[in-house]
Amino acid sequence: MDENELRTALRATITQHAEPPPMESRTALVTARRAARRRTVLACAGTAVVVLGVTLAALPGQGYLGGGTGWAPAAGPSAPAEALPTAFPSGAVPTEENTKPSWPAEASGDATADSGVHYQHGVALLEKLIEVAPAGYTVPNGTGPEDIPWRYHQATVEGDHWAYLVSVPLVKDGRTGQVLVEVHEPGNDLPADVCELATSFWGIGGACEKPDIGGTEVGVVTGPSGRDGVDQWVAYRHPDGTVVFLAQGLSTSGEGGTPLKSLPFTVDRLVELATGGLFK
């Protein structure tokens, strides 16, 4: 296909198909960031832009550009070629300034805070997580494979609220597991039902249980062994709407090493930490 044939095919596509609805960039970034957490806790920052690129890879009912399958115009009667549109539905010409989302000043260029009160809150959550490491375990510092820090913290804007993710490795007898906390401020759109909340964590799923702890609703899940570096977690929604996920794993997120022989925390201890005020 030469340049003229490609231009004709593009024009035919525009004239024969309804214009797709505009993408809400903030929603796309939030969705991608949550998916990135599921893939790996230590490499989730900065992956949200993948979603924006994927949406441009194909047009409805057409072949893929650059995919080796050629271009397949839509079937049906041909339409007269028209000039390509040059404006948004609103009449505004797309520019870098009016298409990118507006992030808070403390997040320089994306949804991840690199300074300010939310960044510092992430640092504080990391310190608290280190403090509650069980006796007999050490929390290494420095970096692991690919120079990724072992001790990790992040604060991100998710829609109308902030979310925090912190994780640390736990080492005992030359074996390495991990514990992590994910906190969502009030105003989040996470499920209200405690078991729906628990099984929504990173999309892992699993069987949810509701232990009887004096009327406090908590969801406890023991997931597929080792998936995404977590084996068990607790989900709890505080009365003010703050959501806390506290998870532990026998190994880290695909970083190699010898797994722990047993999980570091008991379920009772996980519930105690998740429902207390330590990680709010």
Rank of each mutant, 00 (worst) to 15 (best):
E146R: 15
G144M: 06
V93N: 10
P94F: 11
A83Y: 06
S115F: 02
T143S: 13
A83R: 11
F88Q: 13
V157T: 03
V132Y: 05
P94I: 12
E96C: 06
P149E: 13
W103T: 04
D114I: 06
Q154K: 11
D147Q: 15
A124P: 01
V117W: 00
D147P: 10
K128P: 02
Q154H: 09
A111D: 04
L126Y: 03
A111I: 05
A81K: 05
A133D: 02
T112Y: 01
A87D: 06
Q120A: 07
E131W: 12
P104W: 05
S108V: 12
T99Y: 03
I148C: 05
D110A: 06
P77E: 11
T99Q: 08
T138A: 15
S90T: 14
A155L: 03
G109E: 12
A124C: 07
P104S: 00
A163V: 04
G91Y: 09
A92R: 15
Q154P: 03
G109H: 07
F88P: 00
H118N: 05
A107S: 10
V93R: 15
H118T: 01
G122F: 02
P104K: 06
V132Q: 05
D160K: 09
L126S: 02
T143I: 10
E158H: 04
H153C: 06
Y119C: 05
P77M: 08
G142L: 09
K100L: 14
H121V: 03
P140R: 14
E96K: 08
G122I: 03
G159C: 02
Q120W: 03
G116H: 00
S78M: 14
S108E: 07
P101D: 07
A87T: 13
S102I: 02
A81D: 15
G136W: 11
T99A: 08
V139H: 00
A111Y: 02
Y152C: 00
V132K: 08
L84Q: 10
T143E: 05
I130R: 12
S78Q: 15
A83S: 11
Y137D: 01
P104M: 04
P77Q: 12
N98W: 09
E106Y: 06
P80K: 03
G142Y: 09
E131I: 08
P140G: 10
P77H: 09
A163K: 01
P134A: 08
